[in-house]
Each structure stands twice: as structure tokens, then as C-alpha cells.
């Protein structure tokens, strides 16, 4: 199987779907002439023309709203948020219109839009440019929210997203655009609402999504080699719909769980994971579910402070030790 970077897998999905479906259009800042600030849309203006690859001014609320209007009439816009930090300006359109139009029109209109871009921190962009927004958008009925971390998943889920009849919030692991993975040449899709078991194990379940999955895989490797603890790693991939089954099945096997998220602890995705486990696997638990989250502060700039603000391998290992009663 050929290896592609996350970036190229994403571009392949956009290119193939634009070739297949004329209703797909792209909108965003510097996606055309400039080729995309993260080069996701490089070459697409030349290939598909300015009518389908639409460079916009810095007007997130306006162009996201306009894309929603296009979608209401049957186009399938894929909107690039240069980074998800700028989506707060578009969030009124996303939440007040995209998420609810089908409902408050009594089913008369749908909004088949995808809004995509890099999400999450880790590159010293400080407070206004560092957010992990899964829980925010995941809160709203009417939206679908996904957060793929492998090149395979990002391509397969992008195809699913564009073909979906409803609005999809597509949160990319911006820090991982350059990472490689196997991506088949033939067409495939990855469904929403299905978590991925990224590593199998029997002793403890580690659950996350986005770039933190790689952190969990490193932790699992350390636990295996240093302590002979076999951790199972679950990559949620899809935040809404949320795959309860995979989590519950794993915890029934391991009886212990640690949920990890880059975002803030209060009201985050990890809280949802913990709640689902206690609702559906309470009798199987040998220890309270642990959460590891970002520090409860806006993101700092200084390298050492930023490192301290995000979950670390050691924090996850400590949490695993607590649920395994191996403290100290």
C-alpha cells in the first residue's frame, strides 16, 4: 500500500471527490492562489478553476454563512478554516444556521457542508491560537464532529463527510500534517460513529482522539516494555456520533480506563467518556475512571509553560498507575 502524508491524503480526498461530484466547491482564505497556508488545497485552483476553488477575504462569518446558503441549494461546499481558532467568528452561522436549519424548517432544507481545518495546539501559538474544540461543536445536535488522526482515516472520513447530507465539523490534527501512513489506492470510506482500537490490550483502556492518540500509543509501548502492562488504546475518531459500544466493550475486558484530552478538563470529551463508562459498565470497573486534560488556563506561549499545559506521557502513566493501584 502506498504511504501518504496526512496532508496529501486529505488533498487526495478533496481532489477525488471534486472530480467525481461537480457540486463540491471549496471556500476559504488563501486556498487558491496561495495554495492554502497548510498546502492542503495546493494545485486545486489550477485543476478545478476559480469558480470551484473560491478565495475569500478574511470574513469567516460571511463566507461560512454564504457556504451554508450554497449548501441549502444543493451545493456541497467544503470550507477551510485557516485554523479552527477563527471559527469563533463563524460559530454563529455554524450553530444558529447550519446545525438547526433542517430541524426548524421541518425537514425542508438540509445543509450538506463540511467545515475543515487544523485544530489543537502544541506549536507555541499562545492563547488566541490554541484551542481544541471537539466538545464545543460536539455539544450541538445537528452537527457531526470528527477528529481523525491517521492518513487512512483522514481520507476515508473526508469522503464520508462530503457525502453526508448534514453539516460536518472536520477537526484535523494540524500538528500531524506531515506524518505518513498507509493509504490504499482504491476508493474507500470510513464511517462516522465508529471508534478505532489503535492497540489491543487487556489490562487498562486508554481513550483519546486527535494527536493525543499518538501520546497514548507511546505510553502503551512504555507500559508494555517497562512494566508488562498491556494497555488498549482507543481512538474515538468520531465525537458526534459517539461510539459508546467500543468503549464499553473494552472496559468490560480491562476493567480500568483513562480518558485523555488536550482540551480543558471541565465539560470536555473525557467527561463524556467517563459518564458513559459509569452508566454502562459500572459493575465492571475496578477503579474510578481517570481523566487527564490540559491545564485549566489559556494556552501560554513560553515553551516550558506550553509543555506543562498539555497532557504528558508521565501524567498518563501516573493515571494508569492509579487505576491499576500501582501508585508510588
Amino acid at each position: 500500500m502506498p504511504e501518504l502524508t496526512y496532508r496529501n491524503a486529505l488533498r487526495a480526498a478533496l481532489t477525488e471527490e471534486m472530480a467525481r461530484d461537480e457540486s463540491v466547491v471549496l471556500l476559504g482564505e488563501d486556498i487558491g492562489v496561495y495554495g492554502g497556508t497548510h498546502l492542503i488545497t495546493q494545485g486545486l485552483l489550477d485543476r478545478f478553476g476559480a469558480k470551484r476553488v473560491i478565495d475569500t477575504p478574511i470574513a469567516e462569518g460571511g463566507f461560512t454563512g454564504a457556504a451554508i446558503g450554497m449548501a441549502m441549494l444543493g451545493l456541497r461546499p467544503v470550507v477551510e478554516m485557516m485554523t479552527w481558532n477563527f471559527s469563533f467568528l463563524a460559530s454563529d452561522q455554524i450553530i444558529q444556521n447550519a446545525a438547526k436549519l433542517r430541524y426548524f424548517s421541518g425537514g425542508q432544507v438540509g445543509v450538506p457542508i463540511v467545515i475543515r481545518g487544523p485544530n489543537g495546539g502544541g506549536v507555541q501559538l499562545s492563547a488566541q491560537h490554541t484551542h481544541s474544540l471537539e466538545n464545543l461543536y460536539g455539544h450541538f445536535p445537528g452537527l457531526k464532529v470528527v477528529s481523525p488522526v491517521t492518513p487512512y482515516d483522514v481520507k476515508g472520513m473526508m469522503l464520508t463527510a462530503i457525502r453526508d447530507p448534514d453539516p460536518v465539523i472536520f477537526l484535523e490534527a494540524g500538528a500531524l500534517y506531515g506524518t505518513k501512513g498507509e493509504v490504499p489506492e482504491e476508493e474507500y470510506t470510513v464511517p462516522f460513529g465508529k471508534a478505532r482500537v489503535a492497540r489491543e490490550g487487556k489490562d487498562v483502556t486508554l481513550i483519546s482522539y486527535g494527536r493525543q492518540v499518538n501520546l497514548l500509543l507511546r505510553v502503551a509501548e512504555r507500559l508494555a516494555t517497562e512494566e508488562d502492562v498491556q494497555a488498549e488504546v482507543i481512538d474515538l475518531r468520531s465525537i458526534r456520533p459517539f461510539d459508546e459500544e467500543t468503549i464499553v466493550a473494552s472496559v468490560k475486558k480491562t476493567n480500568r480506563a483513562v480518558a485523555v484530552q488536550e482540551q480543558w478538563r471541565f465539560f470536555g470529551v473525557a467527561s463524556e467518556v467517563a459518564a458513559v463508562i459509569q452508566e454502562r459498565a459500572f459493575d465492571y470497573l475496578d477503579a474510578p475512571v481517570e481523566r487527564v486534560s490540559g491545564a485549566e488556563v489559556p494556552a501560554p506561549y513560553a515553551r516550558n509553560l506550553e509543555e506543562a499545559a498539555f497532557p504528558s506521557e508521565q501524567q498518563v502513566i501516573d493515571a494508569a498507575h492509579r487505576v491499576l493501584y500501582r501508585e508510588g
Binding site: 507555541q124 501559538l125 499562545s126 492563547a127 488566541q128 491560537h129 506561549y301 513560553a302 509553560l305
Partner: peptide
């Protein structure tokens, strides 16, 4: 440089 002696204590960086 992200140092504690920075004008906003290293918390904001170039943009802030």
C-alpha cells in the same frame, strides 16, 4: 524568546 523577563512574562509571545 518566551522568557520570564518578557514584557508579558513569556505568556503571550510576539502577537501579544
Amino acid at each position: 524568546y518566551g522568557r520570564g523577563t518578557g514584557i508579558v512574562k513569556g505568556k503571550g509571545g510576539s502577537m501579544h
